[in-house]
């Protein structure tokens, strides 16, 4: 049988395993995308977030068969972009990264938000990040960083 073809961080790949396998496990184990973190395996924490055709998903809740033909982007790919640089700088200025485990997913959630809504209100930012649990920061620094990235990175989104 044919494998499942999709684009991972811009590169065409073919996965020969099961269509029922979790995208999270496949990204980590087969493609070494370890920025994708496993926090719960039930869609409740957002640490495994990935962009599929530009849309934010929890990769623990996606079966491989569902990404056939799609473009999957993880932090391994997103970190090469200008938008990442803007977010990275803003998160750094607000010291929004503590333990860091939620952060790749959080940053992708911010990217998904800003690409739909380049100038979100604070409430919209909190909504946009509401599926990504952070136990360290209390969220203020992260929310401020995203607001700042939107301001400073004007035109990128």
């Amino acid at each position: 049988m044919d494998g499942i073809r999709f684009t991972l961080n811009g590169t065409e790949v073919t996965y020969g395993g099961n269509a029922t396998d979790r995208l999270l496990d496949v990204l980590r184990d087969s493609y070494h995308c370890t920025s994708v973190k496993c926090g719960c395996k039930e869609g409740e924490c957002g640490a495994c977030a990935a962009l599929i055709d530009g849309v934010l998903y929890n990769s623990c809740c996606v079966a491989l068969g569902a990404v056939s033909g799609a473009s999957v982007v993880t932090m391994e790919g997103f970190r090469e972009t200008e938008r990442f640089t803007a977010l990275e700088k803003a998160f750094g200025e607000f010291s929004a990264v503590q333990c860091g485990f939620c952060i790749p997913g959080m940053t992708l959630a911010a990217e998904a938000l800003l690409s739909k809504n380049p100038h979100p209100t604070e409430e919209e930012i909190r909504e946009g990040l509401s599926g990504n649990l952070c136990r360290c920061t209390g969220y203020n620094a992260i929310v401020n960083a995203v607001a700042n990235a939107a301001r400073e990175g004007d035109g990128l989104w």
Partner: peptide, 23 residues
């Protein structure tokens, strides 16, 4: 039948085959 996966993947049933309806 597999639509969004958000319930199915939590169940993580073994030995099943999915019919992907998302496209």
């Amino acid at each position: 039948p597999y639509a969004g996966g958000t319930d199915l993947m939590i169940e993580n049933r073994k030995g099943v085959r999915y019919l992907f309806l998302n496209k």
